[in-house]
Write a protein that binds this DNA or RNA. Structure first.
Length: 103
DNA sequence: CGGTTGACCAAGT
DNA sequence: GACTTGGCCAACC
């Protein structure tokens, strides 16, 4: 564990806490880190060097929309469905219910 | 140090 | 519901 983590690396660490079958938002992560850099979170996910280690596919938009994915959002949706989530027209069903919050 | 870049967000048209 | 606009901010060059 390094001591000096970049903002992006902090995102990964935080995201790692998200349990199976739950989702979070770019905004939630940014705010949890004490900033409003929503976009930076997205940037970090796009780079995501920790692919399987960090569940980047569990991050969605605040509007309940699935958002994007490096390998295509279609793949992202499939993975989420596999985790028990229900997706409809690119949006997460019961989004707020499935939303995991960092305390 | 300035400019560009986004897997975003919110409000408006 | 699709599209536009302005704002936000770390990382990169």
């Amino acid at each position: 564990m390094s001591k000096k983590q970049s903002f992006s690396e902090k995102c990964y660490s935080l995201l790692r806490k998200v349990p199976h079958g739950r989702v979070t938002t770019y905004k939630a992560i940014a705010e949890a880190l004490g900033t409003k850099a929503y976009r930076v979170v997205g940037n970090a996910m796009h780079k995501n060097p920790y692919s399987p280690r960090v569940p980047c596919h569990r991050v969605v938009c605040s509007d309940s929309k699935v958002g994007g994915f490096a390998l295509g959002k279609r793949r992202k949706i499939e993975m989420l469905k596999k985790e028990g989530l229900q997706i409809e027209k690119g949006k997460v069903k019961s989004f707020e219910k499935r939303l995991f919050e960092f305390n």
